[in-house]
Design a protein around this nucleic acid. Structure first.
Length: 487
DNA sequence: ATGTTC
């Protein structure tokens, strides 16, 4: 993009740095991760947004934008910002996203493409019924509001204790599927009302559940693939993408209002965009949002856990074998809309940082804390949802990820607005075209399907290449869709 | 993303 070439210094083939002189108030430079090829697809607005982020109190080292970055609410989607909580660092809902702990889960099977192909229509049709999708969808798990508060505190553990999943699942999730700081007392009744019947639901927009094939020619690192459970040629896997539904949305909405009231009057913080509303992490308001936001994180882990349970039921029914027998085991579960307190070394000093990742995935390298024992020597699995037409990726974190506080991309990244995508494609035609390409897709909404057309996204291969060249994650396997339920 | 404009 012309504008970025003009304002940024090219630090390497994949890093563009905008200096603090670009805009008054910038505390640190902004860095955008992209190859020359990707630069042309980056929204002009991303430059403005990421440099706004660079003015926030406590921001450390850089305001970062991942290679799938695009325009978002306040922060770009793909934004990463680490705030030093001992230096007045802030917490900002715009740096986390409305869909708190929107994330990805990947599950393997011991089936091959040949095994699954004759059943794909039946599998997708049954999954479509079992995993409610679309706006306003309700789950089959019937909870009281007080049960739901337990879910908010316990996350995926609640599900396993109540028959939705296996003990071994918990080990294979970011944070083991639960953050301890969640406090339901900091959540509004309205948020509880919106969320208590949404456990086990997919949602809408770019949320989906997909059956994919790890084609043998698309394995980039055989050792890592094996470690992560991809062991047979043309193995079938299941990937899904969803979040905290109306619950997380309400938590974000509630605290944006709280922060707007106190930000300037009580804390003297001025932001360049109201969408960057924030409060000091160490303030009562900041701590309350942090505790409520962790409820959103736990709700979302629980949501994905119940969906996994439903997937196991459907596969078991279709193949007439138990889920254990079908090898329906977790690879991993990653969050890509969070802020988490982490220790990082910055210029040789250990710092306590609140790392905002908004449309960005944590990608811890080998031997780091919270990487499951089974993956410790390899680094954390990173699950990248591409578009439903083109494909997705399994990656791993790498030691050189420290440059982004161990963060990488989260998906392909939109390059076309939803409005424009709706005008460009017809959902019905797209569905037929995808079927002819070997992808059986069902959606609650034809226009919603059109919004998610592959052409509305950047090329996922380019995004992943940029992340690998930059040294923030490495490719393990590319995954090809054969069936998709789109919310 | 979102009871898709409290």
């Amino acid at each position: 993009m012309e504008a970025l070439h003009r304002v940024a210094k090219k630090v390497s083939d994949t890093i563009w740095e905008i200096p603090v002189s670009y805009k008054e108030g910038m505390r640190v430079p902004a860095r955008i991760y992209a190859t020359e090829k990707l630069i042309k697809d980056i929204d002009e607005g991303v430059i403005d947004q990421i440099t706004n982020v660079a003015t926030l109190p406590g921001i450390t080292k850089y305001a970062l934008c991942m290679p799938d970055g695009h325009f978002g609410y306040g922060f770009p989607i793909g934004g990463v910002a680490a705030m030093d909580v001992e230096q007045g660092g802030v917490i900002s809902p715009g740096g986390i996203g409305f869909d708190i702990n929107c994330g990805m889960r990947l599950v393997v099977t011991n089936l091959t493409y040949k095994d699954v192909k004759p059943h794909i229509k039946q599998l997708v049709d049954k999954l479509y019924k079992s995993v409610p999708a679309g706006v306003g969808s309700k789950g089959f798990v019937k909870l009281s509001r007080n049960d739901f508060r337990q879910v908010l505190q316990q996350g995926a553990r609640w599900c396993v204790d109540n028959g939705y999943g296996w003990e071994a699942d918990l080990e294979l999730m970011e944070e083991n599927g639960c953050l301890a700081g969640a406090n339901p007392d900091k959540v509004s009744e309205k948020a509880i009302d919106r969320g208590f019947n949404q456990i086990g639901t997919l949602g809408s927009g770019n949320h989906y559940l997909e059956i994919q094939v790890a084609k043998k020619e698309n394995i980039y690192d055989r050792e890592l693939a094996r470690a992560f459970g991809i062991t047979i040629p043309d193995q079938v896997v299941i990937m899904f993408h969803c979040g905290s539904r109306g619950f997380g949305h309400q938590v974000a909405t509630d605290y944006l209002q709280v922060f707007l009231k106190v930000m300037e009057s009580k804390y003297g913080i001025k932001v360049l965009d109201r969408e960057l509303a924030c409060a000091p992490f160490d303030s009562p308001e900041g701590q309350a949002y942090f505790a409520a936001m962790q409820c959103g994180i736990n709700m979302s882990f629980a949501n994905r856990q119940v969906i996994l349970h439903r997937i196991r039921e459907v596969f078991s029914e279709v193949f007439g074998r138990s889920a254990e027998d079908l090898g329906l085991e977790m690879v991993y579960d990653v969050a890509h809309n969070t802020a988490k307190l982490e220790q990082h070394i910055v210029d040789g000093q250990a710092r306590s940082l609140l790392v905002h990742r908004k449309g960005a995935t944590r990608a811890f390298g080998p031997d780091m804390s919270d990487v499951p024992e089974a993956y410790k020597v390899y680094g954390q699995p990173v699950i990248i949802g591409g578009s439903m037409e083109t494909g997705s990726y399994l990656l791993a974190g790498v030691p050189t990820g420290d440059q982004t506080f161990f963060s990488t991309a989260h998906g392909s990244g939109r390059k076309m607005s939803r409005t424009k995508a709706r005008k460009t494609w017809s959902g019905d035609v797209l569905q037929k075209e995808m079927l002819s390409k070997g992808i059986y897709v069902r959606s609650t909404s034809a226009s919603g399907l059109a919004e998610e057309a592959g052409g509305a996204y950047k090329n996922v291969d380019d995004v992943i290449e940029a992340a690998e060249l930059a040294g923030i994650s490495k490719r393990v396997a590319r995954l090809t869709p054969i069936g998709n339920i789109k919310g």
